[in-house]
Amino acid sequence: MRVVTNTEQENAGRYAMKGFAVGAAQWAGVGLFASGLLYAFMPWYRRTQTVNKFYIVMCFALGGGAHKSDRYMVNYERRGRAQILDEETRKRYELIYGDAFEAEKAAEKPTSQ
């Protein structure tokens, strides 16, 4: 879908940011879990500074957020393209069959008097 207006651009940006927040939260959880496992089983990780541990978890969160944001944006574009195709198909159908179809429906309906 080609984002044309400023409103559409803002809607797409909001949806992508929603995806970023979801992905960052999910992958930060994965990073915390991995960090906990490393802390429990790896002596070298226990000696690592807290700042570096935070950086590792933050990398998980940022990577997951970027990935999920991209997936949300692709889905937003696909949904927009499908909507545009449906509208165009409906317009063509109305141009080709609209009048004849309406005339058939009107002829089939019995008029009550």
Rank of each mutant, 00 (worst) to 15 (best):
A28T: 04
Y15Q: 07
C59E: 13
L38P: 05
Y39I: 05
L38A: 13
R14I: 08
V30K: 00
I56W: 05
G23V: 00
T89D: 10
A21D: 01
Q26S: 07
G31V: 03
K53A: 01
L85Q: 15
F60V: 04
N52M: 14
A34T: 05
T7I: 09
V51G: 06
A16M: 14
G29N: 02
G29D: 02
V51Y: 09
E94R: 13
V57T: 11
K68W: 02
A66K: 04
P43L: 07
R47S: 13
E10R: 13
G64F: 00
T48Q: 06
L37G: 09
A21R: 03
A40M: 13
C59S: 14
T48L: 06
N11Y: 09
G64W: 01
G36L: 07
G29I: 00
F20S: 03
R47Q: 11
K91F: 12
V74R: 14
W27V: 00
Q26R: 08
M17V: 09
E87M: 08
Y76R: 11
Y15M: 15
F33L: 08
V22H: 05
Y45M: 07
F20N: 01
V30R: 01
N11Q: 14
Q9K: 15
K68D: 02
N75Y: 14
L32C: 04
E8C: 06
E88V: 11
V57L: 06
V22P: 00
Q9H: 10
L85M: 14
V30Q: 05
E87P: 03
A28G: 07
N75S: 14
E77R: 12
N6Q: 13
R79C: 15
Q83C: 07
E87K: 13
G80K: 07
M17D: 11
G31L: 00
K91Y: 12
G63D: 04
G80W: 04
Y55G: 08
N75Q: 15
L62E: 06
A34E: 10
L38N: 12
Y55V: 12
V22R: 04
N6W: 09
S69W: 02
L85W: 15
Y93E: 15
L95R: 14
G80H: 12
L37M: 12
M73C: 12
A66F: 04
M73T: 15
R81P: 05
T48R: 09
G31K: 01
K91P: 03
